[in-house]
Design a protein around this nucleic acid. Structure first.
Lengths: 235, 235
DNA sequence: AAACACATTTTTATCGATAAAAAGAGGGCG
DNA sequence: CGCCCTCTTTTTATCGATAAAAATGTGTTT
C-alpha cells in the first residue's frame, strides 16, 4: 500500500513519477520551470497563459498553484491571482541560516543512526557528483540539470538516516528553495567548483563519525552559495 | 501594500481574516474542523460531502484541500481523493522531537534578538493564558478554543523575536500539527494543568536571559503532551 | 467458498462557460 | 498637469456538467 504525500511527515517515500492526473503533471512541470528560472522571480502567473502553456484546464492548474503556494514557490493574493515568489537578499539570508541550523541537526541525527546502506549511498552519490563535475559542460541546460540532480542526491543522502521525517522533509524543502539561487550563480558565470572541494571533506568526516567537524563543514558549505550570490550586486 | 502568503518565508504577517474568496472561506473552516477533530483522523474527505457542508463548488474546495495537503493536514492520493492525515504514535513522536529541536533553536535566536516589545508580549500573553486556565470550564468547546488560542499565542510570542522567518514559520506549522494531539488529551480527560506550571518558569528564564535553562525547559514542556498522549493506549 | 469477469454505482478529476473583481483607457475638470 | 469618474477590457474565481477512474455488487466457474 503506497503512502500518500504529506508535507510535515512522510512515513514512506512514495515516488509517483508518472503523473496520472493533470494536476500532478502541471505541478511537476511548473515546479521544474520555477526552479529552472524559466518563469522569473516575481512574475505574474496568469491562469490563461499557464493553461495554454501546459495544455490543461483552469481547475487543475489552480490546484497545482495552490500546492506550490503552500510550498513557498508561489504567492497568492485574493482576487489578484498568483505570482512567482520573489527572490531577494533577505530571503536568501533567511533560508541559508535556517538551513544551516536544521540541516546541521539533521546530519547529527543521521550520524547517530548510521547504517551500512546509508554510508554506501553517501559514497555512491558523492562519486556520481564528482564524475558529473569532472565532465562538466557549463551553459548546457542538460548538464546543469544533471549536475543539480546529483548535487541534490548527495545532500539528501547525508541526512537520509535521520529518523525525524518532519525535520528531513523541511531540509528538503529548504534545499529546493535554495536551488533557484544556486542556479542564478551558474548563470552569473561562477565556477561549479565553488564549494565542490568541501563535498569530499564532508563525506570523509561523516563516514569517520566526526560529528562536530562534519556539521561545521556542512554549515560552511551551505553558506557558500549565499556568500557568492550576495557578492553580486545585481541581486 | 499587503504581503502575500508564503509557507517557508513570510516577510510580513498579513492577516486577511475576512475571507474574500470561497477558497479562503473553505480553507479556514476546514482547517478549523480538522484541528477541532470534527473530521476525525484518517477519514475520507469526499468532495460532494464537503461542498454540501460548506456550501461551495468543487473547484474551490479542491483548491483548499490542495493547500491543506501541502501543509500536512490532508493526504492526497491520485484518483482516490483526499483524506484527513492520520494521527499516529510515530507521527506524534516525530513532530515532538522535531519541534524540540527547531523551537529550541528559534528560542535561542529570539533571546539573542530581544526587544522591549517582545518581552512585553511574552508577559501579556502569559497573563492571558494564566487567567484563562484559572477560570477554566472544561468540556466547553468555547473554553477549549479560547484556551488553545492563548496557549498558541504564548508559544508563538516566545519565538516571535527570532529573525529567521522560515524557521519561525516551520515552528508554527509544527505547533499547529500538535494541536490535534493536545486536543485529544483534553478529550481523554486530562487536566489542563499538565505543563502549565512550566509556562511561568519558561517566561522567567527567557526574560532573565538564561538561554540554556530556558531552552531546556521549553524542550521538556514540548515533550509533555507527547508523553501524556503516548501513555494512553487508545492511540 | 475463493477467484474471476462483468455490469452498476459512486466518486474523482477535468472541462467550458460565466459572474465578479481588478486593471486599464479615455475624457472632463480643478 | 494631475486627479477623479466612468466605461471597457482583462483576469480571477466559481459553478454546473461530464468523462474517467475506482469501488461495489452480482453472478459464474472451478
Amino acid at each position: 500500500m503506497a503512502e500518500p504525500a504529506s508535507r510535515l511527515f512522510r512515513p514512506d517515500e512514495a515516488d509517483d513519477d508518472t503523473p496520472s492526473t493533470a494536476t500532478e503533471a502541471a505541478l511537476k512541470r511548473l515546479k521544474r520551470d520555477l526552479i529552472r528560472g524559466v518563469l522569473p522571480s516575481g512574475r505574474k502567473l496568469k491562469i490563461r497563459e499557464l493553461t495554454e502553456r501546459y495544455g490543461i484546464g483552469a481547475s487543475p492548474m489552480r490546484e497545482a498553484l495552490a500546492q506550490l503556494a503552500s510550498g513557498g514557490f508561489v504567492n497568492i493574493e485574493s482576487n489578484k491571482g498568483f505570482r512567482v515568489a520573489p527572490v531577494s537578499r533577505s530571503h536568501l539570508v533567511d533560508i541559508t541560516q535556517t538551513r544551516q541550523i536544521v540541516e546541521g541537526e539533521a546530519l547529527r541525527h543521521a550520524i547517530a543512526n548510521r547504517t551500512e546502506a546509508w554510508e554506501e549511498e553517501i559514497f555512491t552519490s558523492f562519486q556520481l557528483l564528482k564524475w558529473e563535475i569532472d565532465r562538466r559542460d557549463s551553459r548546457s541546460e542538460e548538464w546543469l540539470d544533471a549536475y543539480e540532480e546529483r548535487h541534490r542526491r548527495f545532500h539528501l543522502a547525508l541526512i537520509a538516516a535521520c529518523p525525524l521525517t518532519a525535520l528531513k522533509q523541511f531540509c528538503e524543502d529548504l534545499y529546493t528553495q535554495m536551488t533557484r539561487y544556486r542556479r542564478m550563480l551558474k548563470e552569473m558565470g561562477f565556477s561549479e567548483q565553488i564549494g565542490s572541494s568541501q563535498h569530499e571533506e564532508i563525506m570523509s568526516l561523516v563516514l569517520d563519525g566526526d560529528v562536530e567537524k562534519a556539521v561545521a563543514t556542512l554549515r560552511d558549505h551551505i553558506a557558500i552559495t549565499a556568500t557568492a550570490v550576495l557578492a553580486d550586486d545585481r541581486i
